[in-house]
Amino acid sequence: MTETGEPEIDLLSHYARSLGIEVSGFEDGVPVLCVSGIDAIEGRPGHFHGGATSGLMETAAYALLRLALHERGEQAQLKPINITVQFLAAAKKEPLFAKARITKLGRRSANVTVEAWQEERDRPRASAVMNVMIARSEPEAT
């Protein structure tokens, strides 16, 4: 961790950065991600496209997994297995936040849940469950 509390690894993919997703802060070491109400996220006029909401939640899950593996000193490549998204309420075209929780971090896969919210945190706009494949780089045998 640096003095600002930011980890020294890259938490965002090309895709996440070009969509305008940012790390807005950390809560107990867990990254909170945010995307503002820009045109690139709009679906129905004035609202988020479900795909943009899902993209933010997926990015929050990968960011947390990358961080957790980094903190354990492990090198691994993450690959998506699946995602199930519940769209609970229309997200308005204004900042949307997402935070993930690791339910299981196993040898070969992880299970992660994510929630996305706007001004009222206890009324999430969407939630997701994801399974992610963890391809660890094995130390070479000598």
Binding site: S13, H14, Y15, H49, G55, E58, T59, I83
Partner: peptide, 24 residues
């Protein structure tokens, strides 16, 4: 396109844009 890549290792479209396209 490059902006849709999921990681630096493989030059492939990320899962997020594929989800968006399937939703649409």
């Amino acid at each position: 396109r490059e902006e849709l890549m999921g990681d630096d290792v493989r030059r492939v479209i990320a899962s997020g844009p594929i989800f968006s396209m399937l939703d649409m």
